[in-house]
Structures are given as C-alpha cells and as structure tokens.
Simulated scan of single mutants.
Amino acid sequence: MRGTLLKVVMIFGVLVGAVASAAAQGAAPAPPKPDAKPEMTESCPGLIATRSPLFMPASLRLAALERDQLRFTFIGHATFLLESPQMVRIATDYNDYVRPQVLPDIVTMNHAHSTHYTDHPDSGIKYVLRGWAEDQKPARIDVTYKDVRVRNVPTNIRSYDGGTERHGNSIFIFEIGSLCVAHLGHLHHTLTQQQLNEIGRVDVVFVPVDGSYTLDLEGMIEVLKSLKAPLMVPMHYFSAYTLDRFLGRIRQEWDVEVAEVPSVVVSKASLPSKPKVLVLPGR
C-alpha cells in the first residue's frame, strides 16, 4: 500500500512538472512599455509573463527543477533558502540564530542587527556576501556561480545612536533561471528612482512587514508599488498580530494567499497575472 501511494505521488509530481514546463515554453514575454527606462527592462532576464497562478508546493515536486524554475523556502525571520536548477543553494540574511539545515553555497548578510549577519560563517560556504562595507562605503557585489547571479543595491539604515549608517543595508537581487528575486533586507526608507533603476524588473520580492523596526507599512506599500513585482512574500514579522496587521492593510491593495507549506516552486510562467501576496509559514 505504501509503495503504491509513493508511486502515485511520484507520477503526480512528474505530471505537474510537465504542465509547468509546457507553460514556461509557451509563455511569451510582454513587450516593454514605450516609456519604460532601459534599466528597468534589461537588469533582469525577461519580462513578467501573464499567466494564471500555478504554484507548486515543493513537497510535491520529487523531480529535479526545470531550468526555468526556482525553489524557495521560508526558514524564518528574514532568512530564505533559494535553490536553483543546478542546485546552487543561497541563504539570505544569514545569521547565528536562524539557519537552513543544509549548508548553502552562497549567503547574503545585512548590518542592521545581529539577526541579519554573522561574524562566524561556516568555512564551507563558497561565497559570503556582506551587504555593507567599512567606513560607510557602499558594498558592490556582482557574483555569478553556475546558474545564479547575485548583485546588490545599497540602502541606508538607522544607526544605534539615532543617526544614519550610510549603505548599511543591501537589497540583494538574485537572477535564477528566468526569474529575478529581490530581498529587501532591513529596509528603512523608500527607494529613489536611481535605486529602482539599479534594481530593475523583479518577479518575486521578499518584504519585511514588521512596520516599526524597518520601514512603516505605508512606506513599504509605496516601495512595493514602485517595484511592481507580481509575487510578494512577507518576512520579518514577530507575531501573528504583526503579520495580520500587515495583511489587513495589504488586502486593500492586492489579493492574499496563505500557503500550508514553507516551500514553493515557481517559474516565470507560473507567476500570477495580477500582483499577489503569498504568506509562507516560517519554520
């Protein structure tokens, strides 16, 4: 009985993967608007496909990722594990408190609090990417490893003495498969047009939604509207109350979907046709 059930699940996973692959091959990118800035269309691969939602819980995908797919898992706080088709693993805002169970190939970190970085990363990590530099100079990161490119856009943060630490945070951009993913880190302010141009078009954005330690809710909504990502994933909330406060406000703007598992496989073709907030349970 157990063997039969496993076979059914495997067949189902293969069928779902075939559907996703066919959808990806048939998706035609929308042409850029006449007034679109070149930076907004060339910074990331391709434009957003207009397809109906086709999210696949990672637990149902037993086969390897297709080359246009990405798997991401919410580990907790501001840490996600991203996995590419060539099985490059990336952990965001890597720290000493919340870590994935597997050793990442690449980790990104930010400087706002110790829950967003570590001074003692595992020596087996190939690339340790700190989103800040010494003497408040901007970090400049552009790393390619196998089928993944990681780059950053520096932003400022509030310092402990009430001032400003220039370039203490980085918005990290991950180009994986046909997708561009932005992790806003510990964002403290809205974005300038120059920063938006550097970020470029994004398909998925991981957004801090605490509304106090990072940017306030209205400011964060302004950022999300500026980025125009079709898929927005909340992070950096400390209680059900904090998350519900964000969702109550965000439902005035976009649809909200609450997932049952912390992992999702997504491709360009499976992105929602209109912006959506996807809530993943933290581990």
Rank of each mutant, 00 (worst) to 15 (best):
S159N: 12
H188A: 15
A58E: 02
F238H: 15
C180H: 00
A182H: 03
L224Y: 06
L227G: 00
E165G: 10
W132I: 10
K228V: 11
S21A: 13
L231W: 06
P31C: 07
L278G: 03
H120Y: 15
L215S: 10
D210P: 02
V233N: 03
T92L: 09
I141N: 01
F80D: 07
T41S: 12
L15T: 10
R130E: 14
A112W: 12
P104S: 02
Q86E: 11
S84K: 00
Y117A: 09
R2E: 14
E165L: 10
I90N: 01
F246L: 07
A63D: 11
P100E: 03
L6P: 05
D122W: 04
T115P: 11
G248S: 12
I157Q: 08
I106M: 01
P234N: 02
E175G: 05
V14N: 06
T164D: 09
H120M: 15
P208A: 03
V150T: 05
L129Q: 00
C180N: 00
R245E: 11
M235V: 13
V128C: 07
E175P: 03
L271V: 08
W254D: 00
I221A: 11
Q136I: 04
G185H: 06
L70N: 00
Y213D: 13
L15G: 14
Y94P: 01
K146T: 07
M232C: 06
R245G: 08
V16M: 13
V209P: 07
R99T: 10
G26H: 15
L247W: 03
P85T: 04
W254C: 05
N110V: 11
R201W: 04
D119V: 11
V16C: 13
S43N: 14
D147N: 01
S59G: 09
P38W: 03
I125V: 15
D122Y: 04
V204N: 05
L227W: 02
P275S: 06
R251I: 03
R89A: 00
S114V: 13
T4S: 15
L47Q: 14
S270M: 05
Q69P: 04
G211Q: 09
L82M: 07
V8T: 11
F80I: 05
M56S: 12
F12L: 12
G211R: 05
L15P: 09
F72P: 02
E198L: 08
P34Q: 05
L65A: 03
Y145Q: 02
H167R: 08
R166D: 04
G163N: 02
T79Q: 08
R251G: 07
G168Y: 05
A24N: 15
S59L: 13
L129G: 00
F72V: 01
P38I: 01
A78W: 07
T155I: 08
P32S: 00
R283C: 10
D96A: 14
D68Q: 11
Q195G: 06
N156Y: 09
T115S: 14
E253Q: 12
A133F: 04
L243A: 08
D210L: 04
S239F: 00
H77E: 12
T108W: 03
L62N: 07
F80Y: 13
P104M: 01
R201A: 08
P32K: 00
I199P: 00
P234M: 03
A91I: 08
V14Q: 08
A58F: 02
G248R: 09
D135S: 11
I173R: 05
G131F: 11
